[in-house]
Simulated scan of single mutants.
Amino acid sequence: MSSARTAPTSLAKTLSDLQVGWGQRELWGHLGWQDIRQRYRRSLLGPIWITISMAVTAIALGILYAGLFGNSLAEQLPYILVGFIVWGFIAGCINEGSEVFIANEGLIKHLPSPISVHVYRLVWRQVLFFLHNLLVYAVMLLVFPQPLTWRSLAAIPAFALLVANGAWVALLAGIVSTRFRDLTPITQSIVQLMFFMTPIVWIYEDFLNNPNPTIAERARLAEFNPFLHFIEIIRSPMLGADQNLRHWVVVGVITVVGWVMTLVVMRRYRARVAYWV
């Protein structure tokens, strides 16, 4: 009987943690902005260095892979550039999420606030990075105009889905990695590996349409890579390309399943995070 009462109570506390943490937007919004200012405190250009670094890398890889695959720079560079912008947000949520509670040990022990505050702070910081990087996207549209239409506005709900997934990933990875510290470097290594396995610098459709059936069949294995679907629901509308419903379906399923798993883990271990850090 007592366990039956405990489960709903624990779930209520979990949902309350997320709700109260969201209500403290002024706190984590200020902290997220301060993180960026602190990182580039003595820099002349400040956060713009993030954008410049990303742009230089994307341009270099665009020129390189355009030559390797025989594509025009006008096709390869925008594909890589937008892929880099989206991947930067994904990788940031995962890598920083795996140590979000460890990095905020002092605040967790001395500041009586929901643990979700630290995750909201992290995701907000990544959103700011993403918005900074959109400056490069704007410049790219001037140099390489894309066939944008009203359907390109689908990038807005697509990014909202990305943010929602970034939150549960950071929460889940943060709790598990706080308990098992060895998972942090493992997670970062996996993210680095997935960068090369995800169509960011190579164009997925080129391999699917390859006249060699063996290459085309192997390319279809990329469909099992969840990052492909997250990249495509944003990149396609940002480049004015046709969208595929299957990408949205996969992302929707992952969002629901991911949040259910995260709520289960939070219900069981949320209160222990303060003891683990």
Rank of each mutant, 00 (worst) to 15 (best):
W259G: 00
T187H: 02
G106A: 13
V139S: 05
L131S: 08
R5Y: 09
A154E: 09
R267G: 12
A74G: 11
W28V: 04
N210A: 06
L61R: 05
N225K: 09
I85C: 08
N71E: 14
P211F: 05
R41D: 00
I156R: 00
R267M: 15
W87E: 05
A274K: 05
L131N: 04
F101I: 05
N210F: 11
F227E: 02
A58Y: 06
P147L: 10
L45A: 14
R268F: 15
L111Y: 11
Q126D: 10
L11E: 03
S236H: 12
G83A: 09
S98Q: 04
G174H: 06
P147M: 09
L68K: 12
I102H: 10
E105T: 11
V264K: 00
T198N: 07
R42A: 09
T9D: 09
A160C: 11
S177A: 15
Q126V: 00
A167N: 04
A173F: 15
W49F: 11
L11G: 02
P78Y: 08
P47W: 10
S152N: 07
Q38H: 03
T149D: 10
M194W: 14
L142A: 11
P226N: 08
S72Q: 12
D182K: 14
R37T: 07
Y137G: 03
A74Q: 11
F89E: 05
T214P: 00
E99G: 05
E217Q: 13
F227I: 15
I36S: 01
T9L: 13
N225I: 10
W28L: 04
Q34M: 09
S2T: 10
N225H: 11
A58I: 10
R151S: 13
I80D: 05
A60F: 15
V163L: 11
V143W: 14
V249R: 03
L15Q: 07
G258N: 04
W28F: 15
W276V: 03
L134N: 11
L141V: 07
Q192V: 01
G67I: 05
A271E: 04
P145N: 10
L77I: 06
T255D: 09
L107E: 06
V56K: 06
L162F: 09
L142P: 00
W202P: 01
L172V: 08
E217M: 13
I102S: 02
G21L: 07
